[in-house]
Amino acid sequence: MANIKPLVALPPMIFAALAALFYFGMFRDDPDALPSAVAGQPAPAVAVTPLGDKVSFDAASLRAPGVKLVNFWASWCAPCRVEHPVLEQLAAEGVTIYGVNYKDEGDKALGFLRELGDPYVAVGADASGRMALDWGLYGVPETFVIDGQGTVVLRFAGPITRSVLENTIRPAIAEAGGS
């Protein structure tokens, strides 16, 4: 019977520890933000293969003057469809956007762009997901704001909605030196 008493105290101790963890977790700066090891660092390596006859890009493209976005997407990704009109709007405004098609079939990816429009100045395929790993991707869509020296200013995981555009992406573009 002496062995049972310590076990009786275990559930309340576990509950108290979890309650404390949840309580203190509520006071984080941005509870929806995912950590990024690349923010403030030079953009990781670019390792894409051509997507059909689309113009591709490389690491030098990301170091070129001007603010640019790198957007990871896939034709099978429903949130990518949701954010696509916002990317089209940014492209129409003159924002340079590079696309990385993630673990997708080339024909389906090209069909996606034919159907919804192509906001990318250049696009490449990451069929194996290797580039995504180097960039610390959690999933698609994800978008990175890159400054004119090739430094990552912001990593945003999830679809860019109108609200995200105004409250997160545009301020990051301004911080990176864009308008």
Rank of each mutant, 00 (worst) to 15 (best):
residue 77 C to M: 05
residue 145 V to Y: 12
residue 129 G to R: 12
residue 79 P to D: 12
residue 55 V to C: 02
residue 45 A to D: 14
residue 15 F to L: 13
residue 94 G to D: 07
residue 143 T to H: 03
residue 133 L to I: 13
residue 165 L to Y: 15
residue 143 T to G: 03
residue 71 N to G: 00
residue 71 N to D: 13
residue 70 V to H: 02
residue 136 G to R: 01
residue 94 G to T: 07
residue 98 Y to D: 05
residue 108 K to T: 05
residue 42 P to V: 06
residue 18 L to Q: 07
residue 10 L to E: 11
residue 74 A to G: 12
residue 155 R to K: 15
residue 126 D to I: 01
residue 69 L to N: 00
residue 29 D to W: 11
residue 124 G to R: 01
residue 7 L to G: 12
residue 176 A to E: 00
residue 95 V to L: 13
residue 7 L to K: 03
residue 93 E to C: 04
residue 135 W to I: 03
residue 161 T to S: 15
residue 108 K to D: 10
residue 95 V to R: 06
residue 7 L to M: 13
residue 136 G to H: 09
residue 25 G to H: 09
residue 35 P to K: 06
residue 28 R to I: 10
residue 3 N to Q: 14
residue 84 H to E: 00
residue 50 P to I: 02
residue 109 A to V: 00
residue 165 L to M: 06
residue 108 K to P: 00
residue 130 R to P: 08
residue 154 L to W: 12
residue 165 L to C: 04
residue 150 G to T: 00
residue 106 G to P: 10
residue 105 E to P: 01
residue 78 A to E: 13
residue 79 P to I: 10
residue 47 A to C: 06
residue 15 F to W: 10
residue 35 P to S: 12
residue 55 V to A: 15
residue 179 S to G: 08
residue 111 G to E: 11
residue 136 G to S: 07
residue 79 P to C: 11
residue 143 T to C: 08
residue 124 G to S: 10
residue 54 K to P: 03
residue 43 A to S: 05
residue 176 A to I: 04
residue 150 G to N: 05
residue 99 G to Q: 06
residue 156 F to E: 10
residue 44 P to N: 09
residue 9 A to Q: 12
residue 90 L to S: 07
residue 176 A to L: 07
residue 107 D to Y: 10
residue 3 N to W: 14
residue 110 L to K: 12
residue 117 G to W: 01
residue 60 A to L: 10
residue 22 F to Y: 14
residue 103 K to R: 15
residue 110 L to S: 11
residue 81 R to L: 08
residue 4 I to E: 11
residue 6 P to Y: 13
residue 159 P to F: 14
